[in-house]
Amino acid sequence: MEQYLFYILAAAMLIATVFAITEKHPVHAIVYLVTSFFALAAIFYLLAAPMIAAFEVIIYAGAVMVLFLFVIMMLDLGHPEKAARPGIGHWLPAMVLGVVIAAAAVTAITLRTTTAPATRVIGIKEFSVALFQRYGVAIEIISMQLLFAVVGALYLGRKR
């Protein structure tokens, strides 16, 4: 059952992501990308990581993409649906990188000898302890970086 759900969700995610890349209209692309994030969140839930699933929706679908949408709506884009699709030249670097990633993934899967550990649900307490004790320094550094971004935005937005 879970296996089939995984394949259905993965297929939905891949299709939505491909549409998000090829769609010419940025607002439609955002809708596809949000769909893809939802499928990804459901996959995280299936993989016994409910916290990550919730944060995927709260942060990526609910905050980051909403801000993208806000910016796109504020700008007048004219008629993006009349724009030309990217040619083969634009696609080439992405295709080369895609082949490299696919090759690496195939090698990793075929050469793997250890079996995957049995999935178990990671509790919120365990998750938080790992986040703030084991990776505490990294968390602090990342939050400092976010603070710099806020200060930078304030500087750019201040009254001249």
């Binding site: 919730a54 709260i58 609910g62 909403v66």
Partner: peptide, 16 residues
């Protein structure tokens, strides 16, 4: 187990 987070997630989706 993550009931409160599900509420926050759904309310952040309502924006769309």
């Amino acid at each position: 187990n993550i009931g409160l987070l599900v509420f926050l997630a759904l309310s952040s989706i309502a924006v769309y």
